[in-house]
Design a protein around this nucleic acid. Structure first.
Lengths: 347, 347
DNA sequence: CTGTTAGCGCCTTCAG
DNA sequence: CTGAAGGCGCTAACAG
């Protein structure tokens, strides 16, 4: 007998019925200590381990997992700060849910991936970050009876989500620069072509355009630099930006990561921030405070917390839990934005 | 009938046997298209969804999950970069494993948590990061037949792990400062008291001491600052460090996060880095390059990759896969370390 | 306190 | 091509 021992093997060896073995497995007090000992010994001798899957079938319980679906490679520091919020709620929650992390590289496969998760995974709820499910996605989620909560740019809808207004955030950032007197402002963001579906960058760009318009500044597409959301690309884009003449006097980067990369390149080129050129980011990472980056705070850690709490409420109360609200976006003024000054390194 | 429909309900409605329903569920070609249509219609009408757990029982398959066990709050940016490596391997791997994230706050509960994971979770393998399982932990893992790989400070052993030599890293960092001429070097690290079990900080401190010794410098415990591994604590510790007279001429921070916090506080106090005081970190986060932090590179992303590849090899080949080796540690010289200069802000 | 009996929902032979 | 039967490993009444 080389196969894994089952409850029946244990019962046979201990000379009892499988019911009794099941009782000791479930810590029932209804077993005399002598037979308990005998059964424990038998388990030990056989190296018996209860089959986790089999236990759930008659018991009709779930695995107590919640899933997080996110474009992880998108901007991983902010993801990390958000995840910290998720974890802190999960760990303090009375019913201990574990975390499954589903990430997608290509938004084109979002739908496909979602279906796969719904039908083959054992989760009790799903938190969908930075991605917006379509109507058919939502239907599928509902039909499957899988509670879900979105954490993204959608402000309201007939599905549960905690929205954050990226347009407004982009507008606030750009407006800040304009208020300082800037009129030639570049935008540094991710690539809409590759990332259709991850609309965050589009939204913030839209906010940028609105602020320009409100400030009476003409939109100039040559001041817009976009590419895949990673540090190397941000650096390359900044190098291209440095070819511009005249140079922009300020940059709005759609993420703190890109802002920091830009600042690095600017410094390497001999430009001082904010004396020669101003930079504002978006995220307010914990690290941004340390390096003095002026940025837009959208409460990453808190959003992870609220999203998770909301999801848990949806799972457990089953009713329509109240939708939590994130605090308003905030421009955090630090040291990378100043008044404009014309410089020309391309002279 | 308000309960969830089962395969039997579908069979009844479609007027077929459950075997045939099962066949269409499993995309068997052995079903005539007419009956398939009928069954599909019945499923649709009932809103039938196969029970995921029940499918696994007779099939004797696993859920294809791999777990990552880590002290997540420990230092989450480095965790994040490592995780990126894990995810990249998982997503490119032919058999699509999903990721379960188990984090522990208190190392005291490491063992307990591990047992819980082994016995109640459905994973095919476990990657244990920055934590070292005891002999009994390892036994339990083996008895349960759960493949596991460690990613930590243990360099070798009778269990599968990819080691990184924190002592040597700490030594290299400190040695670098000494080579620049520093003799009064502070150490900024995490708190051993709270975090017994997370020995990373102890190891790097040990390396610090060895380097001092080799450099003929007496160890001064008053130059050692330790506390919980978070930005606020790092800032407070740096403030305390600033009370010292004379001031140290250099700081070795056991993580880049702490190094950046320290630099921020130093700057706020009017000290310039590295002109007035030098700082070296440990991690080489992606962001560290951008801000010019001198640090020790231990290949975070790559370690996540190698660890995951190794684990997958252990799972699939079942044999003793060759233990991968991380490239050697490297001091990355950037702009936060210079020659010492006595300054006294406490005059 | 304990053994026995039904399932949990599905897959997989095995006959037809 | 299809139906019926017999598990997968365990839990949960139910009788004793």
């Amino acid at each position: 007998m080389t196969r894994k021992p089952t409850i029946r093997d244990v019962a046979r060896l201990a000379g009892v019925g499988i019911g009794t073995v099941s009782r000791v497995l479930n810590h029932s007090s209804q077993v005399s200590s002598s037979t308990r000992e005998r059964i424990l010994a038998a388990m030990d001798e056989l190296g018996y381990r209860p089959n986790v899957v089999a236990r759930h079938l008659p018991r009709r319980t779930t695995f107590q997992n919640i899933g997080v679906l996110t474009p992880i490679l998108f901007s991983y520091y902010s993801f990390s700060e958000r995840l910290r919020g998720v974890q802190s709620v999960l760990q303090s929650h009375r019913s201990a849910y574990e975390l499954m992390l589903f990430s997608i590289i290509s938004p084109a496969r979002f739908h496909e991936r979602l279906m796969e998760i719904i039908h083959t995974r054992t989760i009790d709820g799903l938190l969908i970050i930075d991605l917006v499910p379509t109507t058919s996605d939502i239907d599928a989620l509902r039909v499957a009876g899988l509670p879900f909560v979105g954490l993204n740019h959608v402000m309201r809808g007939d599905w549960p989500c905690i929205g954050t207004d990226n347009i407004r955030g982009g507008q606030m950032a750009t407006r800040t620069l304009i208020d300082y007197g800037h009129r030639r402002i570049a935008y540094l963001g991710d690539n809409a072509d590759d990332l259709a579906g991850f609309v965050t960058g589009d939204e913030r760009l839209k906010g940028y355009r609105r602020a320009l318009e409100a400030g009476g500044i003409a939109y100039n597409p040559r001041l817009v630099f976009r590419g895949p959301h990673d540090v190397q690309t941000a650096r390359q884009l900044t190098h291209r930006l440095l070819q511009l003449k005249p140079l922009p006097t300020a940059i709005f980067a759609m993420s703190d990561t890109q802002a920091m990369a830009a600042i690095a390149v600017l410094n390497e080129a001999g430009l001082r921030v904010p004396d020669d050129i101003s930079v504002i980011g978006y995220d307010d990472l914990e690290i941004s405070q340390q390096i003095g980056l002026t940025t837009v705070r959208h409460h990453l850690d808190l959003s992870g917390k609220l999203g998770t709490e909301y999801l848990l409420a949806c799972i457990e109360e089953n009713a329509d839990a109240p939708v939590p609200m994130l605090p308003p976006l905030q421009v955090i003024v630090r040291r990378t934005v100043g008044v404009p000054r014309e410089v020309n390194i391309n002279a």
